[in-house]
Amino acid sequence: MMMTDRNDDILEDIFAQARAVAPTPSDDLIARVMAGVPVPQVASQPAPRRSLGQQVLDILGGWTAVSGLVTATCAGVWIGVSPPESVQDYTATYFGDEISVSLFSEEAIFATGDFFDG
């Protein structure tokens, strides 16, 4: 029993010496710790770089708007290539053989002839 008490006393003495250990952090350790501090996430983190495609997409209004534009463009091309009957007459009028434009009237030609003859 006495020996156990003696051993406990030794341990308590060593514990007390350990509790008195209070090292001061060296400048080197402080520097290492501060070097590990990440750049503050909110205040100074730069905005992520965006590609040219992303910027164009933003200007056009995002993927939703662009998908509408693509659909409208495809529909327009298709109507041009294979127009439905209801618009066929108009396309024939614009692009068919029936278009004829007379730039000079016969009178004007004769008048020119008169000019040369005269």
Binding site: I30, M34, V37, P40, Q41
Partner: peptide
């Protein structure tokens, strides 16, 4: 966490001695 870098230095001064001990 909200971006105050000086808070990191203050935390280091306050906590590092205890952690090291």
């Amino acid at each position: 966490a909200n971006g105050d870098a000086q808070a990191a230095q203050a935390l280091t001064e306050r906590l590092l001695p205890r952690v090291l001990a």
